[in-house]
Amino acid sequence: EFIGKEALVEQKTNGVSKRVIGIELSDRAIPRHGYKILHEGEEVGEVTTGYHTISTDKSVCMALVDARYAKLGTELEVQIRKKTFHGVVVKKRFYDKHYKK
């Protein structure tokens, strides 16, 4: 879902700053739009889009989270249906330059 400038301004005025991050999951589960992002059981954001990359053979997603959890290397969980899957904040460039078909 697209977040317009008005929504970003509103989030900042409410004292909550959010950032778009990339998350790489350690499992093959595919996160989808709207799934919760958790940190130590607390909801800190939600998935905006997710998929399985061909070039790296990993499940990844983009998510909108509280800025406190946006640092590279931060460990988060993605709630997919009734299970949670371990993930790590990574750069939003989800491909391997050396990918060969």
Results as ranks from 00 to 15, higher is better:
residue 25 L to N: 07
residue 67 A to V: 08
residue 15 G to I: 04
residue 25 L to P: 04
residue 43 E to H: 04
residue 79 Q to E: 13
residue 24 E to K: 09
residue 10 E to M: 08
residue 34 G to W: 01
residue 77 E to S: 11
residue 44 V to K: 01
residue 86 H to R: 12
residue 97 K to L: 12
residue 43 E to R: 11
residue 32 R to L: 10
residue 15 G to N: 07
residue 33 H to K: 11
residue 44 V to Y: 01
residue 74 T to R: 04
residue 10 E to R: 03
residue 74 T to G: 11
residue 72 L to S: 13
residue 61 C to S: 04
residue 63 A to S: 10
residue 46 E to A: 13
residue 68 R to H: 08
residue 98 H to K: 13
residue 92 K to W: 00
residue 53 T to E: 11
residue 52 H to V: 06
residue 93 R to M: 09
residue 70 A to I: 07
residue 74 T to K: 05
residue 17 S to G: 06
residue 78 V to L: 00
residue 83 K to I: 04
residue 53 T to R: 03
residue 55 S to I: 06
residue 41 G to H: 03
residue 14 N to R: 08
residue 66 D to L: 05
residue 94 F to T: 13
residue 94 F to Q: 12
residue 10 E to V: 08
residue 85 F to A: 02
residue 65 V to W: 00
residue 49 T to L: 05
residue 72 L to E: 14
residue 83 K to P: 04
residue 20 V to W: 03
residue 10 E to W: 01
residue 52 H to T: 09
residue 87 G to W: 04
residue 60 V to N: 07
residue 54 I to W: 06
residue 59 S to G: 09
residue 39 H to N: 14
residue 83 K to A: 11
residue 100 K to Q: 13
residue 68 R to I: 05
residue 91 K to N: 15
residue 59 S to M: 03
residue 101 K to L: 10
residue 6 E to H: 06
residue 75 E to N: 10
residue 18 K to T: 14
residue 69 Y to H: 15
residue 61 C to A: 06
residue 80 I to M: 03
residue 99 Y to F: 14
residue 36 K to Q: 14
residue 64 L to S: 13
residue 66 D to R: 06
residue 20 V to A: 09
residue 42 E to N: 11
residue 67 A to T: 10
residue 41 G to K: 03
residue 6 E to Y: 02
residue 35 Y to W: 05
residue 72 L to N: 15
residue 92 K to E: 15
residue 88 V to F: 01
residue 61 C to N: 02
residue 19 R to P: 07
residue 49 T to S: 15
residue 24 E to F: 02
residue 90 V to H: 02
residue 19 R to S: 15
residue 71 K to Q: 14
residue 100 K to T: 14
residue 98 H to G: 15
residue 75 E to T: 11
residue 53 T to D: 06
residue 101 K to I: 09
residue 61 C to F: 00
residue 82 K to F: 02
residue 88 V to R: 00
residue 42 E to A: 12
residue 18 K to P: 06
residue 84 T to Y: 01
residue 85 F to K: 03
residue 59 S to E: 04
residue 32 R to D: 02
residue 77 E to H: 06
residue 21 I to G: 00
residue 79 Q to K: 12
residue 75 E to K: 07
residue 88 V to K: 01
